[in-house]
């Protein structure tokens, strides 16, 4: 239960690989999932987050601390988000968007979705498959049929080039 004293309350979060993290409650409640736990009074001990690994949780906590330190200024928050995500690779982004979804943090989810969309923009099918490790389980005939079905989309698009 949130302490009613003046000192900031700290929560302990546990990742699914048993790493422990301390985080200020004021920052952690950016996650609607955690906020609900706090409000329901089940945040007293260690909060287990079964769907988030330690590496991702560390990142998310960095984000929570960073964004909650910025006063209500959408411009500044946006530029913080951009900077925060700028050096993340695609595996990390996928982990983060899952974590954001699990933790119910819509601002982070939107920002990561936009970042992933940016990665996919203007890329060939082959490039996207390799980048995200998507296995092409179509037979050549099936693939040709999908292409034929959406001819207008694939007109002039090379599906296997490398750019």
């Amino acid at each position: 239960m949130a302490a009613e004293t003046g000192t900031p309350t700290t929560l302990t979060l546990k990742s699914n690989d048993d790493e422990l993290f301390s985080v200020a409650e004021s920052a952690a409640i950016l996650s609607v999932t955690i906020r609900n736990m706090v409000e329901d009074g089940c945040a007293g001990g260690v909060i287990p987050l079964d769907n988030v690994d330690g590496k991702t949780l560390a990142s998310v906590i960095t984000y929570m601390n960073g964004i909650s330190a910025i006063p209500a200024d959408e411009e500044k928050k946006k530029s913080y988000r951009d900077k925060f995500l700028s050096d993340k690779d695609f595996e990390t982004l996928a982990d983060m968007v899952l974590a954001a979804n699990y933790l119910n943090m819509s601002c982070l989810m939107d920002a990561v979705s936009a970042k992933i969309a940016q990665v996919m923009e203007k890329k060939s099918v082959g490039w996207v498959r390799r980048k995200f490790g998507i296995e092409n389980d179509y037979t050549p005939e099936e693939e040709a049929a999908v292409k034929e079905e959406h001819k207008w989309t694939f007109e002039g698009v090379e599906t296997d080039d490398d750019n």
Binding site: D95, D110, A117, F132, T153
Partner: peptide, 28 residues
Amino acid sequence: RISSLPKEILQRILYLLTQEEATGTSIL
């Protein structure tokens, strides 16, 4: 990992692409 993301996340990602790009994901 991306293919197993929940539908609502994929929808958010596709929302931001052009129609051609979004429809083009059908061939992945």
